[in-house]
Amino acid sequence: MRAMDPAQKYPALSDLKAACKARVPWFVWEYLDSATGSESVKPRNRAALERVLFRPAILRGPIAPDLTTRFLGQDYAMPVGVAPVGMSGLIWPGAEAALARMAQARRIPYSLSTVATQTPETIGPVAGDMGWFQLYPPKDPSIRADILTRARNAGFRVLVLTVDLPGPSRRERQLRAQLAIPPKVTPSMLWQVAQRPAWGLGTLRAGTPRLRLMEEYLKLDGNAPSTAHPGYLLRAAPDWDYLRAVRDMWDGPLVIKGVLDPEDAPRLRAEGADAIWVSNHGGRQFDGALAALDALQDIRASVGPDMPLIYDGGVESGLDVLRALALGANFTMLGRGWHYALGALGAGGADHLATLLQDDLIANMVQMGATRPEQVATQLAPRQDRRDEM
């Protein structure tokens, strides 16, 4: 009997998300899907995206969209990439390599987290020229220098400095799930794993998920909660001097991730940032944060038309990508989405999601008569919540 085409069984990211929940252990799901506090930021991100509407175009004749995007001196197949996700290999065995391999094949950027389960030396050659490295700022300058040197030597071209974590968040769902980093085996955990054999067998082959890079600088006994793992314990609360030090050490493109205040953006540009990443960390840090999309337009206005901006927060489709581009982004990223896809379908899930995003981008651009992604801004309908401002 022929297996069902994934495009029929999983035609949307929501289908992949539901399948992922059914295939990974509960403690893994709580790690991937959770935010902090009442988790109000996640629906806030979605609501902001859904308020952005367009006028469809008519009588434009045949439309052949071109998704290729030049960003930070590199050509990408579409304006979508893989955001960094800590402990990616916990969510699905071999996640970092699978996503890096997909990104290289699809010609989209892949961002490796400082707190990934694999080292830069392992993943850099897989990602090739699509590799970005995300830095959680270490307190120790010598550790910072060593990590940056290793990332550069492993082939990573773009550095992403995350600045929106001055301290750990509580992430209550993860606390209730009793998740430790690295995972501490308990009877409850064993029972959860037994109910998800594909994840369990894959993890058995791949080995216990560990923060391999950070553990080289700090050893733990395995009893640290997920919000007090080596990455947190080594991390600094960076300031502007820290940013200058990183800028001086990194000779490639530097992206500053976690920006929501338009007053910060011009100074970041002046201090040498090559791009600003507008993000509220998917609601995982601060439950009182505004929707990232609501910050995007103000940040664009504050830096002018030429500063490269990246957007993430609630993106679930090609249409959402176009919404962000229409409001001022040059590029978009997904984090959880790629991992929902891995959990649903294994390594092949990432490629399937890339196809879904690509096809949805094309379908919606045709509706708007756009041959290039940036052209959809001309089809924006007035936002209902901003009519009084016009």
Score class of each variant (00 low, 15 high):
A245H: 12
T162M: 13
D164S: 10
P225W: 09
M249Y: 10
Y136R: 12
W338E: 01
A265Q: 07
G313R: 00
A22N: 13
G94V: 08
G314T: 02
R176I: 01
L72P: 03
G304F: 01
V115C: 11
P187C: 13
N364H: 08
T69S: 09
L234Q: 12
L243D: 02
D75R: 14
R51F: 02
Q104L: 14
D221V: 03
V321E: 01
R323K: 15
H352T: 10
T203Q: 13
L72T: 01
D388I: 05
L361K: 00
Y232T: 06
K219M: 12
Y242A: 02
A347Y: 06
D287R: 01
W191K: 14
L13T: 11
T227H: 14
T203E: 09
G222S: 10
A270P: 10
R55C: 11
P43Y: 04
L356K: 02
T149D: 15
R60W: 06
V185I: 15
P109S: 11
A206E: 13
G37R: 10
A354K: 11
H229V: 09
L159T: 01
D388H: 09
H352F: 11
D351A: 15
T162I: 14
K17M: 14
W250F: 04
T186A: 08
Y242W: 10
A206K: 03
M390Y: 11
V28F: 01
G200Y: 02
R383Y: 03
Q74C: 07
Q134G: 03
G337T: 00
A326T: 07
A103N: 13
L112M: 09
T122F: 06
V321P: 00
P308E: 05
M307E: 04
L357C: 03
T332C: 15
H352G: 07
Y232I: 11
P120C: 05
V158Q: 03
G89C: 14
A224D: 14
Q192S: 03
L325K: 12
A341P: 06
Q8V: 09
R171L: 00
D129W: 12
V303N: 05
A198G: 02
G328Y: 04
Q192R: 06
L234T: 06
G131T: 10
A151S: 10
L161Q: 07
Y76C: 11
S40Q: 14
D164F: 05
V160E: 14
A154I: 03
R51A: 15
E50K: 07
R150Q: 15
S226F: 07
P125I: 02
Q118L: 06
H339S: 04
A273Y: 08
L13I: 11
A19L: 04
G328E: 04
F54C: 12
